[in-house]
Design a protein around this nucleic acid. Structure first.
Length: 141
DNA sequence: GCCAACGTTGGC
DNA sequence: GCCAACGTTGGC
């Protein structure tokens, strides 16, 4: 796993939740219409791991998914461009969601992009921060 | 190319 | 419901 990267994928649970992903087993992570987020999506590759974050009322990292397919086209007639999606597979639910509040209070997570660019929906997470978040979520095994 | 107006996201 | 932070659009 030395070469795998870590990501954080944001979703509004009323639109698509991790519970839905658990039911679906896997899904095409599509609908990203932001250049910066898309550029990160293009770098995701099979084997990479993604944290799933629920925005809105929940505001917490809720679980983990595995990327099973790298970027492929996500055409949008309303907004032409080279949009891409990836395929992810459900991996696990955190035993305890890690609230945004806790993330903000954790000194070790100060550099998490989530805190710096609140509107970014796809972002890289350092291996260190990934570890910290998993631990906070009760997944330290 | 600049910038004001407007739209969207997401946190509070 | 409001606001901050961006992103987008359109006039000039």
């Amino acid at each position: 796993m030395e070469n795998s990267c870590h990501w954080l994928l944001k979703t509004e649970p009323s639109t698509y939740s991790i519970q839905q992903l658990k039911t679906d087993k896997k899904t095409g992570w599509n609908g990203v219409r932001n250049f910066q987020a898309r550029n990160f999506l293009q770098k995701a590759k099979p084997g990479d791991i993604a944290l799933i974050y629920h925005s809105g009322d929940e505001r917490a990292v809720v679980g983990v998914a595995k990327i099973t397919r790298g970027a492929y086209p996500d055409p949008d007639p309303k907004k032409p461009g080279d949009w891409v999606q990836i395929e992810i597979q459900f991996h696990s639910l955190f035993l305890k969601p890690v609230l945004l509040k806790e993330i903000k209070e954790c000194a070790g997570l100060k550099d998490l992009l989530l805190l710096k660019q609140s509107r970014l929906s796809v972002m890289p997470v350092s291996a260190q921060n990934f570890k910290t978040l998993c631990k906070m979520g009760g997944m330290d095994k």
